[in-house]
């Protein structure tokens, strides 16, 4: 250290670091900002914590009101299942469904568009270098981001819409029937096997679950007409209009159920 003057050296623990000329780019304290600053601890943290606790309770209520979904166990042989990623991947998934992003052009959808968008985002600080920070003083950056947002919203919506239409054309519920029915089973049983929405509550095996009653012996309480009425109009917690199929099939299903005594 000989030759170096004391005032050029800053002590950090036991090591000597040469003092920097010129300060850091931003001073790490806020005394330069006008207005009412507040210490992080305890003032600001306390307020944050109070809001966090309220949100946490709201969140807990939500988790109890809407238990997380769990479908049938994975069945690698069931190729008729319509797969869907988690919702925040919808836009990427939907992007692959257009003419110039699928088939021979798949690279466009998998690499080119997302890659360009991501590279632009990653390099934003170097692409948008001016000192101005207000959105309207950066028209290019702002409009590109708004465009990207619009595209994400649209693609997400399109994915949901397409999926719903597809499901409707498949005869409702998500996925293929989870029960195997023998070809000589009664007509009603075959129809039941397709009603994944009904099965969601009453169980594939009619055993019921939670608030939904077992249907194993419905026939002893209800007639075919009454069953049809409940399927159409709902009852108590059961929503109306869940049956997927024709009126004739509905009658056959109700007939089969009415025989369950």
């Amino acid at each position: 250290m000989a030759g170096r003057h004391e005032k050029d050296v800053e002590y950090v623990g036991d090591s000597r670091v040469i003092k920097r000329r010129g300060g850091p780019l931003t001073p790490p304290d806020y005394t330069e900002f006008p207005g009412k600053t507040e210490p992080f601890y305890p003032n600001f943290l306390l307020k944050e914590w109070m809001i966090a606790v309220v949100s946490l309770v709201a969140f807990l209520v939500l988790t109890m009101a809407h238990p997380s979904p769990l479908e049938a166990p994975a069945n690698p042989n069931d190729t008729s299942y319509t797969p869907l990623p988690d919702w925040y991947f919808f836009f990427l998934y939907q992007l692959l469904k257009y003419e110039y992003t699928s088939g021979p052009y798949t690279v466009v959808g998998t690499i080119l568009i997302p890659g360009l968008a991501f590279a632009a985002l990653l390099l934003a600080p170097w692409l948008d270098r001016g000192p101005k920070r207000r959105p309207k003083d950066r028209p290019v950056a702002t409009s590109l981001m708004l465009l990207a947002l619009a595209a994400i919203v649209f693609l997400t919506w399109a994915a949901v819409d397409e999926h719903q239409k597809h499901m409707a054309s498949q005869g409702g519920g998500s996925g293929a029937p989870t029960v195997e029915v023998s070809p000589d089973a009664p007509e009603g049983e075959k129809i039941w096997a397709k009603q994944t929405t009904c099965q969601g509550c009453h169980g594939v095996d009619l055993k019921g679950s939670g608030f939904a009653p077992s249907l194993e012996h419905v026939g002893s309480n209800l007639s075919q007409e009454q069953i049809v009425d409940i399927i159409k109009n709902g009852k108590g917690q059961m929503p109306p209009g869940q049956f997927q199929g024709s009126e004739e099939e509905l009658q056959k299903l109700a007939e089969w159920l009415a025989q369950k005594k």
Partner: peptide, 11 residues
């Protein structure tokens, strides 16, 4: 961690 100021414009 504790002592940094929270400036008005982010509060």
């Amino acid at each position: 961690l504790a002592d940094h100021e929270v400036p008005e414009h982010v509060n």
